[in-house]
Amino acid sequence: MNSYRTHTCSELRAANIGKPTTLIGWVDSVRDHGGVIFIDLRDRSGITQVVFHPEVNQDVAKASQQLRSEDMIQISGTVAARLKTDTVDTTNADLPTGEIEVSADTLNVIKKADVLPFQLDRALSNEDLRLKYRFLDLRRPSMVRNMQIRHRVTKTTRDYLDEHGFLEIETPILSKSTPEAARDFLVPSRLA
């Protein structure tokens, strides 16, 4: 637990129903259902649905209407079961948190997002645009998945080699000078 949140967006389950929680992350999507605002809140671990009821807190519900994709927010509220009856089923079996939602009673907008240069949930063919907005590109689900896999492979390799007595030693990388008139970047070193 840290001071910004009590749970990540993929942690909450049916066992947490009725308990208070604080989450922080990016707004993935916003849906207005007649004054009741639903958002999907995303962090690197997953997505949790958050609902803002006007009858719970009128000011917070009104502020939630101004949220848009990629705004960074912190919410506090109570974990509740999603509506499931014989005729209506709002649960989402595709999400690990699909049986619950968080009924928010506080909203803290950490940072408002500018208009996005591209949609994070769609494939992007313009490589220059991806690199210019690398900070946004790294939030895309495919990139998050790639970084997590790379981390696990690197960690597993290092752990295996460490357990077998190997040392990791970083040596300077030798490369030839570039002919494009760029100056070489020399790294100072200390003699032992």
Rank of each mutant, 00 (worst) to 15 (best):
T22R: 14
R134D: 03
T90N: 13
E55N: 12
T21G: 05
V102R: 01
D32P: 06
D121S: 12
T154D: 08
T154V: 13
K62I: 09
D86W: 01
L174V: 02
L186M: 11
T85C: 03
T78P: 04
V187R: 02
Q119T: 14
I73V: 14
D121Y: 12
R139S: 00
A93K: 14
R130H: 01
S175K: 06
F38R: 00
P117N: 03
F185S: 10
R13K: 13
R134A: 08
R122G: 03
I17T: 10
P179Y: 08
H164M: 08
P141Q: 04
M143N: 12
L131Q: 11
V27R: 01
S142R: 14
Q66F: 08
D40V: 09
E99F: 03
H53V: 06
P54H: 07
M143Y: 06
R68V: 12
G18W: 06
F185L: 14
D137I: 08
L138M: 13
I37F: 03
R122S: 09
K62R: 14
E170D: 08
C9I: 06
T87Y: 02
P117A: 04
T22A: 12
R183L: 11
V144H: 03
M72N: 11
R190M: 11
R134P: 07
S76C: 05
R42E: 00
V51H: 02
R150M: 10
R150D: 02
D105T: 11
N2D: 15
D114N: 12
N92W: 01
R82A: 00
E70W: 02
D89S: 02
V50T: 06
Q49D: 06
I24M: 14
F185M: 12
V51D: 07
L186D: 07
D105F: 09
L116C: 08
E180N: 12
Y4S: 15
A61N: 04
A80H: 09
A192N: 14
T91W: 00
S177E: 07
D28R: 14
T85L: 00
S177K: 10
T171P: 01
I149A: 12
N57V: 07
M72K: 13
T6S: 15
T154Y: 04
I169S: 06
V50P: 07
